[in-house]
Design a protein around this nucleic acid. Structure first.
Lengths: 328, 328
DNA sequence: TTTCTGCATGTAATCGATTACATTATACTA
DNA sequence: TAGTATAATGTAATCGATTACATGCAGAAA
């Protein structure tokens, strides 16, 4: 049904090789021949069959993007950054949801291997990354985004979580706060661990004692933000302000506070990582750490393209992007 | 580098045809041979090359998903529903961002045609859909989600916007509200038009006069929600409650209200389409219309698979999913 | 024993491009 | 004018699978 390179060749009275050369911009083709071919292509509404092309060239111009959840604005804004950058180079993106499960992550990697993608960008589902080697062993470059993993090193685009956290806490201290609670994520995730580190380092630098009673760990999800905020508020000596290490826990924590009856409502403020959606509109929220989400995607895509085009084995490279402090 | 069907065949001492038959579950293969082949496959860590397979079978087991924006929870939750359903059938999804531009939408369609996808799910960028024919003319089935378009009819999964709107307004009236403002979307989008319709129909049914002064139209974006809420509040006789027809305008409108100084703050409530993220946590918000986002994606994927497997030309089919009223 | 049937497997063409190598045409040099 | 370099194009193998058709072989029937 659809016309092939043969049809074009026949109509233009040349060989398929010539047509192929025209399509690929081979400079040796005479302008007369090129013209003939282009006319035939137009007349037949010929569209190249990338499947066939890929079979020969071993390039699909498709990359995989694996992330722990699709309905998550952070991940999807990164994905947007990836798509934006990649399409400049004619690449498209197969989006995979690992559902925060290492098992599913493995499945997606197998899938992408079978689809013969040219490269993969991964926001890891967990701290473990040994299965990512399945990709690199087949010569498929991998770029990690947002988090690093154990047992696997590669290019990565991260944000400077430590200094992001540090800057908020420093700001809070300078604003007069002393009793600063914390709701962190699973510290097996590097992002969570680093934010933790920043929080503690700032307190130490300002000689404020670290009180484990007002440090709680959730799992980056709304519900855990809710639960941990409750735990904090039930402390004998609750914090004046709580620094929460991601947006969804921020939302959950806010929910808890809103639900408390006015009478019981503690006088507490919130600082939080992530300036997304309407984080800045949330009650209680005083300060935010904004991550350059699009840029994470852009850079990750850029690094991947580079690796794809230059297969020499360089040292893994890590880009750290800066966060921004947003005071309401 | 990677092993091919030939390597497997050689190692197992059979022909490539036999290996292919084992892979594809041909029942004629003797269990002895099958065993041999499977062992070779395992030993060589053979992974099928889908590029080569696709070239012969003319199926890529890949579908395209085009939506107006990636960093949008509604669209991405639909995408999640799509991915969830499709992976059951071994399909993967190329996600494309049309950036709310018909031009970019066209480009993505061309891209997907060249990638030889087996089908496409589109959340249209605008009211115009004539370019979708490029797909169906090549025999590639299309399923629309969320919105219909002019000049192109096909399978579609929509929500019952009219009754969704109607139900909120009815509820508000029953709760005693009479002066109910409205912030709608661009009525060239069918979803916006239908929500409009539901709003007006309910008012008429309850004999409440429709006052154009408290009906404003935005564009489904945050900023327009902000602007239109301001306009409403500047009316001589502002509404007691405003029904807003999507989440992002809801957020913007809330932002406007929050920013008003306590003193100036009008006593106004909000009802809104979409129960996403933290819609339900927003100040002022009393009632929500929840859309079954995952289900939209599931159904769209299901319809697409059906079309792909059964190429007979049936009448376009439209699924309307019900919304749910959520009273805070 | 011979012929036939049907199952299991093999042979080789094919999908639609790319590309190494071959060939022809053209221009330039001595 | 013959010889050679160069440019333009063609021929045909190839990528890795699928599959129509061919073949071989075991057991059943005669």
């Amino acid at each position: 049904m659809a016309s092939t390179i043969k049809d074009v060749a026949k109509r233009a009275g040349v060989s398929t090789a010539t047509v192929s050369r025209v399509i690929n911009g081979d400079p040796r083709i005479s302008s007369k021949t090129k013209e003939k071919v282009l006319i035939s292509i137009r007349e037949l509404d010929y569209k190249i069959n990338n499947i066939a092309r890929s079979l020969k060239t071993n390039k699909t111009h498709t990359i995989g993007f694996i992330c722990p959840e699709l309905a998550n604005t952070f991940f999807m804004t990164v994905a947007k950054g990836v798509e934006d950058e990649l399409r400049k180079y004619g690449y498209s993106v197969i989006v995979c949801n690992s559902n925060e499960s290492v098992e599913e992550e493995k499945e997606r990697i197998t899938l992408l291997l079978e689809k013969c993608v040219d490269g993969v960008i991964i926001i890891p589902a967990s701290h473990s990354g040994s299965h990512f080697k399945d990709l690199t062993e087949q010569g498929i470059p991998v770029v990690l985004a947002d988090r690093l993993v154990e047992d696997f090193s590669s290019d990565a685009v991260l944000v400077d979580n430590i200094n992001g956290s540090y800057a908020v806490i420093e700001h809070l201290i300078n604003s007069g706060y002393r009793r600063i609670g914390y709701i962190g994520g699973d510290i097996r995730l590097t992002s969570a661990k680093e934010r933790d580190e920043g929080y503690k380092r700032a307190l130490r630098d300002y000689l404020i004692p670290i009180d484990d009673n007002i440090i709680k760990y959730g799992d980056y999800h709304k519900q855990s933000g809710y639960d941990k905020m409750r735990e904090l508020m039930e402390e004998k000596d609750p914090p004046e302000i709580v620094f929460i290490s991601n947006y969804y826990m921020h939302v959950g924590a806010t929910k808890f506070l809103i639900e408390q009856k006015e009478a019981n409502r503690r006088n507490v403020a919130i600082a939080s990582f992530d300036d997304m959606e309407l984080a800045s509109l949330l009650e209680f929220c005083k300060v935010l750490v904004s991550q350059p989400m699009l840029e994470i995607g852009n850079k990750a895509a850029g690094m991947l393209i580079q690796r794809i085009n230059d297969s020499k084995d360089h040292e893994p490279q890590i880009i750290r992007l800066k966060t921004q402090l947003i005071v309401k």
